[in-house]
Design a protein around this nucleic acid. Sequence first.
DNA 1: TCTGGGGTCCTAGGACCC
DNA 2: TCTGGGGTCCTAGGACCC
Length: 354
Amino acid sequence: MLHFDLDQFIAAVEVLRRPELRGLPVVVGGDGDPAKRGVVATASYEARAFGVHSGIPLRTAARRCPQAVFLPVDRAAYEAASERVMAVLRGLPAVTEVVGWDEAFLAVQTDDPEAFARDVQRRVVAATRLESSVGIGENKLQAKLATGFAKPAGVFRLTHASWFEVLGAEPVGVLWGVGAKTSAKLAELGIATVAELAGADIATVAARFGPTIGPWLVQTARGLDPSKVTAEPYVPRSRGREVTYQQDIEDWATVREEVTTLAARVAEDVAAEGRPAVRVVVKVRYKPFFTFTRGVALPAPASDLAAIAEAAQAALELFTDRRPVRLLGVRAEFAAEAAPGEPGRSDPDPGDLS
DNA sequence: TCTGGGGTCCTAGGACCC
DNA sequence: TCTGGGGTCCTAGGACCC
């Protein structure tokens, strides 16, 4: 299995259309104004040398690297570039699973995966001039983690045999799905490294993290991952829109108007999806940074603006706290997909009228 | 100094049913 | 005065990822 990952994707797309930026620290985020609320989407390697990386506030980035070129996020450009890359990958003799703008898994039958990986990189450069890194593994987890060692523009292979040699002494946070919170909880159990988690008592970890996540954590630390690479088309579970306002909103009438504006955009997305929504959830982030959600089920599945806007207002009314608002979001959820061979939960069952 | 926007999945608690 | 056990569904929050 291969994990394909474009290098500094968003920054690379920007540099391609502005060649004069090549070699400069480039930071993409928000509307390109580092004095405003927003975070870094991607920083070029030159900017990363100044401690600027994805997720930090734009204002912080500007302090660390005042000479950086700040650019606004241009989703359409990245989606178009991503589509060209993924078209190349889908044309390969492999099962291709796209997992975002700049990443994909490939399952391939080959005696020489490194040669295959190099060939993939060459084809993508030829078609798009974008550099990538490729991780190789005996499963998706190994391939994904291998990519980190392949960057930039390289290839790296992890196996069951090399897993602990390469990763055993690393902090648990390097694992896919283990973030800051889980790392902190594991530390309370005396577990800091991948090897320690791999050797931990499963019952102890399960008692702390639950019967699904606990055993999964230990399996992951052992380099095991049963998930398959699938070319099944992506079916979204929900569509949402949210906005962080440059100034907190204090007037609740304005909050209601903004929710309706967001609901209209969501209704467009839902209509484009071609499947009706069954539930609408409103998110409110109050000043300074307290976030809550409230939702309502639609009386009947719907895709039209009137129904979604009405539901969004009903959900908003469930918020009784009228403190200043920093962020508003509206999300529409689709009906859960029935598993293959199973009747959908929403299907009426004429055989049971009791 | 603040902390985006797009998502997914899991957990826990309450309502409800038999 | 005391009031089981098993199960499903719904909702809100938490954690994580790109």
